[in-house]
Design a protein around this nucleic acid. Structure first.
Lengths: 106, 106
DNA sequence: GAATCATATTTCTATGTGGAAATATGAGGA
DNA sequence: TCCTCATATTTCCACATAGAAATATGATTC
């Protein structure tokens, strides 16, 4: 279903379920079954999204007995964060001005 | 080509050309023609991406004579930024530890 | 080794998508 | 009004993608 090709972090984040999976993994590593329970999505559906996340380098798997335990690997998000960096100034100008004011006048 | 439906900021960012357009608009508002010159993409291609960016609320247009001048409206990126927020702690732990060390031992 | 559990992959279908080319629109000028 | 410029939309194609259902795989247990 997917050509073998790397997936950008941006593309991986485009799907809401995948963001949800990452959010769940933020609490700690989880076996697929647990993700299925929490996600209102079929097991194959979850597996497919996990594959995309793997190809984006956003998660890693470890086999533990019968289970596959997934863990967050947030490094690729750093690229998104860096891209976002120059934009932050735009929407936070007012807030930053306030913070700076408070720092300078404590 | 696109069903009429809102586009999430995440989905808009999934396409590299669209990120490039936003980067260009960060310098200031620009007419479409200028974007076409700089983007190694056909004029219709640029127009289509601009439409997606409009539907995501990431740009606004103003008609000025014959030209349509596009401007950045980065507000929707704030949502992405906020989503990213809890992840920042993960990849920056080491860096933060270093910074803190330097602050405490100047 | 057969059965079972947990997960992955395949198959199917409907739909979304990018890019190129052609065409349409709308504003200003001759 | 007709023309031209700037941009938008449409049409076409090839291909990516989501989700559901069925099937396959691989590790453990009996």
């Amino acid at each position: 279903m997917w050509k073998y090709e790397e997936v950008s972090a941006y593309a991986a984040l485009a799907e809401p379920h995948r963001r949800q999976i990452l959010d769940l993994l933020r609490e700690g590593e989880r076996p697929v079954g647990e993700l299925v329970k929490r996600l209102d999505l079929s097991q194959p559906g979850v597996s497919k999204h996990l594959k995309v996340l793997r190809e984006a380098g956003l998660v890693v798997v470890r086999t533990e007995g019968k289970q596959r335990v997934y863990a967050l690997r947030p490094d690729p998000l750093a690229e998104v964060d860096q891209w976002l960096e120059p934009y932050r100034a735009f929407w936070s100008r007012r807030l930053e001005a306030l913070e700076q004011h408070l720092e300078e006048n404590p």
